[in-house]
Design a protein around this nucleic acid. Structure first.
Lengths: 230, 230
DNA sequence: CAGTGTGAACCTTTTCACAGCA
DNA sequence: TGCTGTGAAAAGGTTCACACTG
C-alpha cells in the first residue's frame, strides 16, 4: 500500500506487534506469519495483514514475513530509530515509579529530568536523577531537546504543568493526571487514566452479575430488555 | 433510550463525565448542559447527548441536566454504587505506586492485598499493607471476594499470575505488564501499556517532523514509497 | 426559546473472502 | 500449495441537523 498516514487504530497496534516480533526474534525465529503474529499480539490475522499492508508489502506470499526486516520497518515507521528524551513532571508515587521503569529506556525513551515544585520533592534523588525545580523546565527542555513530557502531578496542577511544557517547546504530552488538559493544536496529548480503567472493568463486572441473575431467572434489578446470551 | 448494553466507546467516556460532574458539584453547580459538560470532558456536545441518552432521558429540554441526579445515574450504570475489593500482584515500582495511589480509594476501589513471590518483596509493608506470598492469593481472593486484580509484574510472569488470578475466582484483570495474556471467556481483561503510549506519541512526533520538512520543501526522508530491500 | 433526544448521513474500523503470487 | 494483500461488505462510532418540549 504505502498511501501515507496510517489509521490511528493501526498505529495503536504497531507497538504490540513490535513487542511480539522482538520476542520472536529473541526466541530465534527468523520468519513468521500473520497467523502466528496475530496469536502473539492477541488479535486476528486479517487485522495483522491489513495493518502491515499500510507500511508496505513486506511479506512474501506463501511464506510469511521476515522477522528482523519487519522489526526494522515497524521501528522506522514508529520513529523508534531515533532516541527520544523525556521529562517527567511530578515526583510523587507515580512519577517515582515511572522514573525507575525499565521499559522506557529499553524502548529508546530516556528520562532526562524529573521536575517538581519546590514544596514537593525538589532535591531528592530518584533512580539516579535529581528532582529539579519546575522553574528549570524551560532550560532543561531546550538544552536536551525534549519533545515528550509526562504529567504525573495531581489533577489540580495538570493544566499549569501542561502550559509550562508547551511554553518549553514540548510537543507531545502523556498525561497521567486524572484531568482534561487543553493545549495548542500542534501539541499531541494522550492520557492514561488508571482509575478510569478500573471503572470500565467495574461496569462489565456488574453487567456480568446482572446477566447471571437474568439467566437464573431472578431478575432483581431493572433491565429494560436484556437478553441473556447462551 | 435504555435499550440495554451501552456501546464500548460510551462506557469508556462515562468515567470522564463522572469526574467532570463531580468537580462541578464540588464547585457548587446544580445544573449543567451538554455543552458545558462536553467542554469539561474534552469532547463535543453531540457526543455527550448521545452518550447520556444510552442511560436514559435524564435531561430537561431547554434546561439541561441536574448534576447530582446525573452523577447518581452514571455511578449506578458503572456499578460504582458498590465497593470493589482489588488485589495487586507484583510489588515492584509500579505495584508500589498503585498501592499508594489515592485515586483508587476515592472512587470505591479498595486495595485489599498486595502479593508477590517470596523471592520478591514478601514481608515488606507498603502503604499500610503487608506484601503477601502469591501462594495465598486464592485464600485472600475468596476471603475478601475480590473480583478485580491488577498485574504489575514483569512481562515474563504475567501469564502465570493471570492464571492464578483466574483460578482464585477473579473475573476482571487490569494488566500493566507489557505482555498479552490469555484468559477464559468469562474474564475481562484491559491493559495499560505505558511504553506503548510513548511509542504512539513518537509516531506522531516523527510525523510532525516529516510533514514540516515537506512543507519547507526539503523532503529529506523517503515519503513516496521507497523502501530498502531486505 | 434554549437545549435535549435522536433519526440520518458520514466516517472509521473490522471482518470476509478470494485473487494473485512466490 | 500456502499465505499475503486487498477490494467489498458489515459493523461500529461520530457528527449533523432539527423536531420536540419544558
Amino acid at each position: 500500500m504505502r498511501g501515507r498516514s496510517i489509521p490511528e487504530a493501526t498505529v495503536g497496534r504497531l507497538p504490540v506487534y513490535l513487542r511480539a516480533l522482538v520476542e520472536m526474534a529473541e526466541r530465534g525465529a527468523t520468519t513468521t506469519s500473520s497467523e502466528s503474529l496475530a496469536e502473539a499480539a492477541g488479535v486476528n490475522s486479517a487485522k495483522v495483514r491489513k495493518d502491515l499492508s499500510y507500511l508496505g508489502s513486506y511479506g512474501t506470499r506463501g511464506v510469511g514475513y521476515d522477522v528482523a526486516y519487519l522489526i526494522h520497518q515497524v521501528r522506522r515507521e514508529l520513529g523508534l530509530t531515533q532516541h527520544w528524551p523525556v521529562v517527567i513532571a511530578g515526583a510523587g508515587n507515580l512519577g517515582h515509579a515511572l522514573a525507575k521503569y525499565k521499559g522506557f529506556t529499553e524502548r529508546g525513551f530516556r528520562i532526562v529530568a524529573l521536575v517538581d515544585t519546590v514544596a514537593g520533592t525538589v532535591g531528592q534523588r530518584i533512580g539516579g536523577l535529581p528532582v529539579e525545580d519546575i522553574e528549570s523546565l524551560d532550560k532543561i527542555a531546550r538544552r536536551e531537546d525534549v519533545a515528550i513530557g509526562l504529567i504525573c502531578t495531581p489533577a489540580a496542577a495538570a493544566q499549569e504543568v501542561a502550559d509550562r511544557m508547551v511554553a518549553a517547546g514540548i510537543r507531545s504530552i502523556l498525561n497521567f493526571a486524572p484531568a482534561v488538559i487543553s493545549v495548542p493544536e500542534h501539541v499531541s496529548v494522550r492520557k492514561v487514566d488508571l482509575s478510569l480503567e478500573l471503572q470500565i472493568l467495574a461496569y462489565y463486572e456488574q453487567r456480568k452479575a446482572v446477566l447471571a441473575e437474568v439467566k437464573d431467572g431472578r431478575a432483581t434489578r431493572d433491565l429494560a430488555g436484556a437478553a441473556a446470551a447462551p
